[in-house]
Design a protein around this nucleic acid. Structure first.
Lengths: 115, 115
DNA sequence: TTATTATATAAGTCAAAGCTTATACTTTGG
DNA sequence: CCAAAGTATAAGCTTTGACTTATATAATAA
């Protein structure tokens, strides 16, 4: 874990690019507290499965996500060992938990079995 | 000044989009401490004047910059009254001051009169 | 006033980003 | 083994973004 020292500007830019998309920012806010699988995100965001997978790939390539396979499902959660974790958590902490978009997403969350 | 309360997700996304470009992130890091005019940035970044102006326009439209006219020059500085100021300062604080790119830019800084 | 300097804006180009549909891969259940 | 479900990847389309050149605007200097 290298969360205490400061980062190069290009490291910071890479993180910002990864989360400057509204879908991906919301994804990171959601996985901050719980893991989600692709099919859950598909339901919550109302996007096609490839679109969701492509966003998750970008976040994973930026080192922000951990992947956990369980049966047919792949669960994604925040990689808190990322060199970006401190800054990312800082950014996410500025988002109001009562944000309408965020609450709308959470309202659509379903347990994996029921989908 | 509304820097204490939390922001909507779309507000945060707007800020992140504004500073997720390497040139604009550096600009904000620079104007955090000093005002700069367009011609100084042109020298420092080695970009054309319209390219610099267009980046500055984006930052201004996001509410991150204050503009101060002095003679033929327009000086830009950080708008610390922006609703984004707290988060922006947080982000900038994660950039190492000894970052090579940043130091290279500062090395090219010249007083306005001498350009 | 006229020329010069600083800056903004407009229009066009090219590459990147986000989406779509189609298809491949992987795991589970019969 | 075979079908179905979950996920990834490939290819194509469309929009956006960062740049370029050309031009307009504004302030100063001669």
């Amino acid at each position: 874990m290298e969360t205490l020292s400061k980062r190069s500007a290009s490291d910071v830019t890479a993180l910002l690019k990864a989360v400057s998309d509204p879908t991906r920012l919301m994804m990171m806010k959601l996985v901050e507290t719980n893991p989600y699988c692709v099919c859950q995100f598909v339901e919550m965001f109302g996007m096609t499965q490839p679109a969701i997978s492509q966003h998750l790939r970008k976040l994973k390539q930026a080192g922000l996500l951990k992947e956990n396979r369980s049966g047919q499902w792949r669960f994604y959660s925040m990689n808190k060992e990322s060199i970006h974790a401190t800054l990312l958590l800082d950014i996410l902490s500025h988002i109001d938990d009562s944000d309408a978009q965020l609450q709308a997403l959470r309202a659509k969350e379903k347990p994996v079995d029921c989908i």
